[in-house]
Amino acid sequence: MSKNDLLSRIILPLLTFIAIVALWAELSAYIENLPSPHDVWLAAFGGITPDGDVITGVLTDPFYINSDEDKGIFWQVLASLERVLAGFVLAIVVGVPLGLAIGMSKKVFYALNPYIQILKPVSPLAWLPLFLLIFQAINPTAIATIFITSIWPIISNTILGVQNVNKDYINVARILKFSPIEMVYQIMLPVAVPYIFTGMRLSLGIAWIVIVAAEMLTGGTGIGFWIWDEYNNLNYPNIIVGIIIVGIVGWILDTVMGKISDFFDYRKRGTAS
């Protein structure tokens, strides 16, 4: 990277940032309930308000625990992450074998495809009341919702991966007399894994979006609930703090998932440049 490029990469986002904050500050002067950048800064990091009140920020002590209902922001984010991860892992465990079966067998494809096509476009939040009825508890409901969110991209991409297996590879396997299990592990999976990881990355992104909405409906803990709760408590600046936190965590999740999927992608390994 040239020095010029590096400079642009730092200076340009900085300029955008200044422009956004300036525009926002201007807007907040006209819109009564819109918190100003300064309000949000105070809400996040604490300080003294223009009225002379001393307030503690959301990020000043993210680890506090007053009661089960009143915990620091770290615990809220952690609760959401745990649900996303649980639902996501469950979706991988179910979705990958299902995708492999559908991709490898025409019969399984015919049997299941219509239902996948019908259920895929349903908003995961439509399932939420049903899960709440079944489980009568917040955590399993949220996890099940994330499961339903995550499973479709994982299934679709696993199928896509299997369909991308070159006919020649299968012929090589047939000549070597691979068993069906060897076929899956030595031919299908290596080809499909990069596709599966693309599906997982998509899933994780959507899951992180959905968990915020789901928690607003279920209540209890979690970053989504927290944002909604701050709205109800009239702590408007905290809503924006919440939005920024959700954004940063989502970005980190996507970056980590991207690195993991690159690691498992044979096409990114030792290919001639």
Binding site: D168, N171, V172, I175, I187, P190, Y266, R269
Partner: peptide, 12 residues
């Protein structure tokens, strides 16, 4: 054993 036109080596 078959040698295919498109080599058919497993790229991974």
């Amino acid at each position: 054993a078959v040698v295919f036109q498109n080599h058919s080596l497993l790229p991974w």
